[in-house]
Every structure is written in structure tokens, then in C-alpha cells.
Nucleic acid binder design. Structure first.
Length: 426
RNA sequence: GGAGAGAUGACCGAGCGGCCGAAGGUGCACGAUUGGAAGUCGUGAGUACCCCUAAAGGGUACCGAGGGUUCAAAUCCCUCUCUCUCCGCCA
């Protein structure tokens, strides 16, 4: 969330930002709810002060009548306080609901636009793969190589699930290990995180666990959810703590499963591994000083580029437009890999890195003590190192050969123990 | 899952319902003493929010969390969470 005082002082800019991001939020309503909350708070504190003074006065000896009068006064105040407390609670609740809808401010250079087609391409590495034969998509390849089974997964678990089989199992593990090795070299602390997190952490990160449009699986009667990304568990790791300034930046690389409901995603491109309910991902997460977050965001992007460059997957980088940023991000880079099997060749998102500034830190209450002794909110950033399902798409489709086999990228051969996946005779 | 013990400020640790935002100790910051250090002495210091602000100042809340009793709760009652010990179960 934003700082309410910032909203009050920059109301015009906040309104404009909400419009630029095509979000459904009302800054003016937030301000008026806040003012109402403050008025009630003042009234309540006043009543409490009178109560304390009354109780204080009763410490000294007094006549029976005076004492009785004091007790009456105390009882009256008790009722007033109880009433005001209820009202304040309601006011704070409605304030919190509206406040949560206000998105982070956007970087001034982030392109204005509504949807992903308004994202701005800023860089290309490699060029779309050329084939001298008709290329297959990864669903077909997965079948002919006998390494991905969608049909059985649909029967056992439902649509948008999959079994990895044979070499694909090794390939996934190889990708994970490859990413972890690179991140370890970049000074990241490696983590394998829980796949479940509390609702309050989800909300702090900026996810909406409830509602029909939510992308989150909630666990019945538990107040917990299946995580959609390790960003949640890594961002929650230091929730409610004050970090030592000298520890910063803290870099974590977390591996987890990711679960997404993808409700209403039927109309979108949903074939194969691209949009699935469960996948494995290595996520980068950084806690840093406010003045460092811009630079570190570039570092995260550079690491993502390093990973996919070294794999030999053609990709481009886009500067995500305001309407596509989501609520927490101040700025976001997406890496889009060339996917030859997608609509006869198309860019498809494989990683993404966001600078969320202090938006998440404020609600999760992650601070550091500054040199002047003041506690300030850290900045938090995240980025995908490897999302296995989509990485596998990009490898299968770009590295396929005329004979129906798929070559393993050189960098992954030592991790896989084989350099090609051949069609399996049935 | 069962039984017991506990949770107080950066840390340790006291705390009879009103004199407790909280003793004492350690640690911390500053000052004095010293050639310098140690030691000693003195002073200061929590967090959040609200009001008022130029600054200063004032108020409210916070003793694991949430409820309750009371004119008044760190202190009494209930629920929950967590930690430790023992038992059970188990990848």
C-alpha cells in the first residue's frame, strides 16, 4: 500500500496514476474515509484521557459521595469508549478495504497503455528461430518424445495439469539447478520455501486471495493459501522485522511450486504448458535500501537475460505498460521468449522482474534503521529466474530438429547428462 | 494428538488491581575523569498513531495475540498462538 499522507499530499498524481493503470480505486474516497477515521480516533482518545484522569483521581482518598460520583462518571465513560471503539473499528475496516485498492505509483518512464500489446520492446537477444522443416509445438513434441502427458493429468487432476515424464523430469531439475548455480554465483542465498502461506502475507505482497476473479487457491478453513509464486514466501520472510542497514541488500533465490487458479483464462492462449495450475519456479527476491532499488532492478533484469542468453533461447525485453503492471509494481521488465509453436511463432512471457519500491514493505512492515535512527521501509524487488513450464516450452520448440528430436542447450548438457531427446517408439 | 512449564523493553530479569511505559542488571549513545584504554561517575535513550507545530510540546495505545471482569488490568478470568520438556504418531 501507499502512505496515506503521500496520497493526501499528492491526490492529483494518485488519481492520474489510477487512471493510467486502469485500476478500480478511489483516492478521494480513501482520503475521506481516513479523515473520518481520524475524527473518531480523536474523539476516542479524548474519552480515554478522561477515563484515565478519572481513575487517577480515585487513587486519593475522598468522601463516599465523591467516590460514588466518580464511579458513575467512570461507567458513563466506559460506555462512550465502547461505542467509539466499535465505530472506529468499522471506520478503519472500510478505510483498509479502499486503501488496499490503491496501486503503487508508476515509474515516470513506464509506457502508458492498457494491455500487454502496449508494452514497449526495448531489446532483442537472438532472433526468431528459422526452421527448414515445419516446426511442431511443444504439445506435439511432448507427446512424440513421450515426455509430457496432458491427457492423463486431465483425467487425474483436471485441465491445465500435466505429468512430466522421462527426460522432461531431468530437464526440469536441470533448469532448476542451473538457475540456482547462477544465482549462487551472484550472491543470492538459496531457499526452498513453503508452498503455502497465510492470507495476510498474500495480501501484504499485493495478492487478492478472495473473490471470483482471484488467481489464488485458498485452503478451506485454514486462512492459508497455496502460493502462486515464491515471491510471497520470500517477501513474507522478514515481515514485521527491522533489518540491520548493513545487511542490505538481502538477495534470496527461492524454489517453490506455484499454484494458480487461472479462472476465466479460457479465452486466453491456454494450450499446453503455457498457462497451467501448477509449475515449479526459481524466484529472485531482494530487500534493499530505497536509493538502491533502481540499480538492483537492472541487476535482476541482467540476470534473467544472462540465464536465457546462455541457454540460447531467443528473447526480447519489454518495458511493461502502466495498465499491465499490476498493483504493487513501480516498474516491470518482462522477458518474452520466442515460441515457434505458438500461433506459428510468437513472443511469450517467460520471466518478469518488478521493482515494488516500498509498496509491499509498508503492509508487511519490513523496515531498516537508518543512520538518523529512524525506521524506514525497505524496497522490495522480485524477478523470475526460471519458470520451468515456460522454459521447457521455449527449449522444446526452439531446439527441435528435423528428425523430431530435441537438442539440449549446451549449458544444460552437464546438468542433464544427455544432449538430445529422441522420439520414443511406441 | 496428550500432559506440564513459560512468553515483560536491544538482551537478561523483577513486578501487592490504582504510586508501572514499567525496578534492577547488561548492553547502547553522549559527557566527565585518563597520556590513551579499562574502570568509575553522570546524563540520555522504546515503537506506532493522533493533535499542535517553525521548533518545542501534548494526548492515546502497546508487557505474546484476541476477548472479558473492573471506575481502574502487565497484574484477575477465558480463548488462541508460539517456545521448551515429556509421551504418542510419522515421511
Amino acid at each position: 500500500m501507499l502512505d496515506i499522507r503521500f496520497i493526501k499530499e499528492n491526490l492529483g498524481a494518485v488519481r492520474q496514476n489510477i487512471r493510467n493503470r486502469y485500476m478500480n480505486a478511489d483516492a478521494d474516497l480513501v482520503v475521506s474515509l481516513y479523515d473520518r477515521r481520524n475524527a473518531l480516533l480523536r474523539e476516542l482518545e479524548d474519552a480515554r484521557r478522561l477515563r484515565n484522569e478519572n481513575a487517577q483521581a480515585m487513587k486519593s482518598p475522598m468522601s463516599a459521595e465523591d467516590r460514588a460520583a466518580r464511579i458513575e462518571e467512570g461507567k458513563r465513560l466506559k460506555e462512550t469508549i465502547a461505542r467509539l471503539e466499535t465505530e472506529l473499528q468499522e471506520a478503519e475496516a472500510s478505510f483498509a478495504v479502499e486503501m488496499a485498492k490503491i496501486p503503487n505509483m508508476a515509474h515516470p518512464d513506464a509506457p502508458r497503455g492498457k494491455e500487454d500489446k502496449d508494452n514497449l520492446e526495448v531489446k532483442r537477444v537472438g532472433s526468431p528461430t528459422q526452421f527448414d522443416f515445419p516446426p511442431k509445438d511443444h504439445v506435439e513434441l511432448g507427446q512424440s518424445l513421450d515426455i509430457i502427458d496432458f491427457d492423463t493429468a486431465t483425467r487425474v487432476s483436471g485441465t491445465k495439469f500435466y505429468y512430466l515424464k522421462n527426460e522432461a523430469v531431468i530437464l526440469e531439475l536441470a533448469l532448476v539447478r542451473y538457475a540456482l548455480d547462477i544465482l549462487s554465483r551472484h550472491g543470492f542465498t538459496l531457499m526452498a520455501t513453503p508452498d503455502i502461506a497465510k492470507t495476510e502475507i498474500l495480501e501484504g505482497i499485493g495478492f487478492n486471495p478472495r473473490g471470483a476473479e482471484s488467481n489464488v487457491y485458498t485452503l478451506e478453513g485454514e486462512d492459508t493459501c497455496l502460493i502462486g509464486t515464491a515471491e510471497i514466501t520470500l517477501g513474507g520472510y522478514h515481515s514485521g522485522t527491522i533489518l540491520d542497514k548493513s545487511q542490505l541488500p538481502i538477495r534470496y533465490a527461492g524454489i517453490s511450486h506455484c499454484f494458480r487458479r487461472e479462472a476465466g483464462a479460457a479465452g486466453q492462449f491456454s494450450k499446453g504448458l503455457y498457462r497451467v495450475h501448477q509449475f515449479t519456479k526459481v524466484e529472485m527476491f531482494v530487500y534493499c535500501l530505497p536509493e538502491d532499488s533502481g540499480r538492483i532492478h537492472e541487476e535482476l533484469r541482467a540476470i534473467e537475460e544472462e540465464i536465457f542468453s546462455s541457454l540460447g533461447v531467443p528473447f526480447r525485453v519489454v518495458d511493461t505498460c502502466t495498465g499491465d503492471l499490476g498493483a504493487p509494481a513501480y516498474r516491470k521488465w518482462d522477458l518474452e521468449a520466442w515460441m515457434p509453436g505458438r500461433n506459428n511463432g510468437e513472443w511469450g512471457e517467460i520471466t518478469s522482474t518488478s521493482n515494488c519500491t516500498d509498496y509491499q514493505a509498508r503492509r508487511l512492515n519490513v523496515r531498516y534503521r537508518d543512520d538518523d535512527g529512524k525506521n524506514r521501509f525497505v524496497h522490495m524487488l522480485n524477478g523470475t529466474a526460471i519458470a520451468c513450464s515456460r522454459a521447457i516450452i521455449s527449449i522444446l520448440e526452439n531446439f527441435q530438429q528435423a528428425d523430431g528430436s530435441v537438442r539440449i542447450p549446451d549449458a544444460l548438457v552437464p546438468y542433464c547428462g544427455f544432449d538430445v531427446i529422441r522420439p520414443r517408439k511406441k
